[in-house]
Design a binder for these strands. Structure first.
Length: 376
RNA sequence: CCGGGAGGAGCGGGAGA
């Protein structure tokens, strides 16, 4: 069981929740899975983005402890299910610093800075570097860089993660002078910092600095290479991006998608398609990228074919398809998509209303608007 | 010391900018 647990965890970490489940069932048939096995399985599902599966594991487990509870809270946080996370936290038999930090993350990802801050400031003993860094990151994500900086400067203990969270916040907003000053003061640099800096320069349009940094750093990993592709894709002529892509020592679905999306944006959809078809694997995001590329060119039937093949459509896919039909003036087909959507959100509702307005159907627009749930 | 919390990469989803 001990070794099998390790194996399960390894699979979970590299995103193979399916393999983790298989190992679990093997354990289950030969021996008795222990609390660790169950929790690892829960986490593997959660990391795969499958909250439902994680909850199922939680419910099926014979025993649970703080770690189990917290693992599920973390899963809810990642899925932005704040209410559920709160409810778990209120029912948890014992809390610890990790549980509270997870809740800060939940608020942060849901964009609720006031709640995150309230919770953070109510922490006593549990306020550790991780909680502080989580709060710092929350501020940075929300664009509250002053608050982030104040917190950062006040932190007694900083580790490399706190430093790069601060650096990333600045670079994200392309505040590169401040970011560079911070980088100089950092005790040590790593790939995370370099990649954040690189993207910051690129976002500012300073591809030369980005490239110089990329060439200068002692090591590069897949994330860093992909960031460089993305950085170079900011240029209209994609030859630099393509050259970087070609030189990559290894690629994954993210790097392929970055290139496909870049081609699609520049209306080079046939090249995008070639690349897409050459990809070793696809996922929702890569298929969406291809869908946009086709849709942007007004290739409705090809878009629809792509959409129909997708078994894992997200809200983004549905709304994109809706908008593609709409832009081509095929209102009835757009309505059909809307009616078949498994879920709707503000964006899809607005898309529908806008379609009607652009088509001059003001009563239909009004009716749709009135049908919109209050929450949206 | 087999499990849970914080930092870097991919989608022009609607409207807006």
């Amino acid at each position: 069981v001990f070794l099998a647990n390790l194996l399960m965890q390894a699979y979970g970490k590299c995103g193979s929740a399916h393999e983790s489940r298989r190992v679990f069932h093997t354990i289950d048939s030969l021996a008795r899975p222990n609390l660790f096995s169950w929790t690892i399985l829960l986490t593997a599902n959660a990391q795969n983005g499958d909250l439902a599966a994680a909850k199922e594991v939680f419910d099926k487990m014979p025993h649970r402890d703080v770690v189990t509870w917290t693992a599920l809270i973390g899963a809810c946080a990642r899925a932005c299910h704040v209410v559920e996370a709160e409810s778990l936290l209120s029912r948890i038999p014992a809390t610890d610093a990790i549980a509270w930090s997870s809740m800060i993350v939940a608020y942060s990802l849901a964009g609720d800075i006031p709640l995150a801050r309230n919770l953070f400031e109510s922490l006593g003993q549990e306020r550790d570097v991780v909680a502080e860094t989580a709060m710092l990151h929350a501020y940075a994500l929300a664009g509250y860089l002053r608050e982030a900086r104040e917190l950062f400067d006040a932190m007694a203990a900083k580790n490399e993660i706190s430093w790069s969270a601060m650096l990333g916040g600045l670079a994200d907003r392309s505040l590169m002078d401040e970011a560079a000053a911070l980088l100089d003061r950092m005790p040590q640099h790593d790939l995370v910092c370099w990649t954040a800096m690189l993207l910051g320069y690129a976002r500012k349009g300073d591809l030369d600095r980005a490239k110089a940094l990329f060439d200068h750093i002692p090591e590069r990993d897949l994330v860093c290479w992909t960031a460089m592709v993305e950085a170079a894709a900011g240029r209209v002529e994609l030859e630099i991006a393509a050259a970087v892509f070609d030189r990559m020592p290894a690629r994954n679905v993210v790097s392929w998608t970055a290139m496909v999306a870049a081609l699609g944006q520049e209306l080079r959809v046939d090249e995008a398609r070639l690349l897409f078809d050459a990809m070793p694997e696809h996922d929702t995001i890569s298929r969406n990228a291809m869908l946009f590329g086709l849709g942007k060119m007004g290739r409705v039937e090809e878009s629809k074919a792509m959409f129909d093949v997708m078994s894992d459509r997200s809200m983004v896919s549905w709304t994109a398809m809706l908008a593609i039909f709409g832009r081509m003036g095929q209102l009835d087909r757009a309505e059909g998509v809307f009616d078949r959507m498994p879920k709707r959100d503000v964006v899809s509702w607005t898309a529908l209303v806008t379609l009607y307005i652009q088509d001059g159907q003001m009563e239909a627009a009004k009716a749709a608007y009135d049908r919109m749930p209050q929450a949206d």
